[in-house]
Amino acid sequence: MPFWSPLALLAVALGLVITHFAVPTTRAWMWKASAVVGLGALALLLYLGLIWAPPEAFMSDVGRILYVHVPFVWMCMIAFTLNVGCAIAYLMKKSWRTDALAESTAEIGVMFGAGGVLMGSIWARPTWGVWWDWDPRLISTAVMLLSYVGYLAFRSFTEDPERRATWSAAASILGYVSLPIVWFSVRWWNSLHQVQSTSQSLDSQMRIVMWWGTVTMLFFLFAFVVKRYEIARSRQSSALEAPPEAPRQEVAA
């Protein structure tokens, strides 16, 4: 993979979300289209990943886990990056919308991350020979997931919506510190986990399937974010009797 490919993915995800919010006419249909296309792409991914792609030279068919493991972990990282973006935006300018979006992306990121780690563990058993190991990549990923599970629990334990929004934004920023550690851990330390693949180290057919899987999951990510955002918004408006557009402005210092 070129080094900018995760950034390109992030840009696409961001573009979809921004379009959804900035262009009102897209709100009704875009997530539906995304979900439908995602379902079709998922069916094709199953075909491509399980049948069309060649087995790997040494892992043989076990290597097919690549096509779902990597996309899940990438979606997790994209969701957390969107989350921390919302947190920073909320601290700079208070808005219920960014708070709802932060809630939505954190939950979806935890879902994708937990799935990705589970798949990685299943993959590790036949290839490395262990389910789990004390390894920089694995430990830092677990830490990142745990800090966002803590974030979600904190949100559900805090009743005051305004405090919840501000405090969880702070928690999100502190928790995000672990993400660059996760990404670079395989480069900084010698790890059992292999470093990120490059376009040279990945067979062209396998590369196509991996990208197909990534795009598929991106469609699901977008549809999930939109639906989860709507849930968060409706909870906000039921928590506040008359939902104001923005929280109370801070008292002048």
């Binding site: 998922l42 199953l46 990943g49 399980l50 030279a57 040494f58 892992m59 043989s60 068919d61 076990v62 097919r64 886990i65 779902v68 493991h69 899940f72 979806i108 879902m111 994708f112 937990a114 799935g115 589970l118 798949m119 299943i122 993959w123 058993r125 036949p126 290839t127 699901f220 999930f224 639906k227 989860r228 849930i231």
Partner: peptide
């Protein structure tokens, strides 16, 4: 070279599909 091991593949794909399906259901 790993011989067989399809069980692991199905397990991983099941996790992926279950994650998507159950999350969609929970939404």
């Amino acid at each position: 070279v790993i011989e067989g091991g399809w069980g692991y593949v199905y397990a991983a794909y099941t996790v992926a599909l279950a994650g998507l399906v159950f999350y969609a259901l929970s939404l």
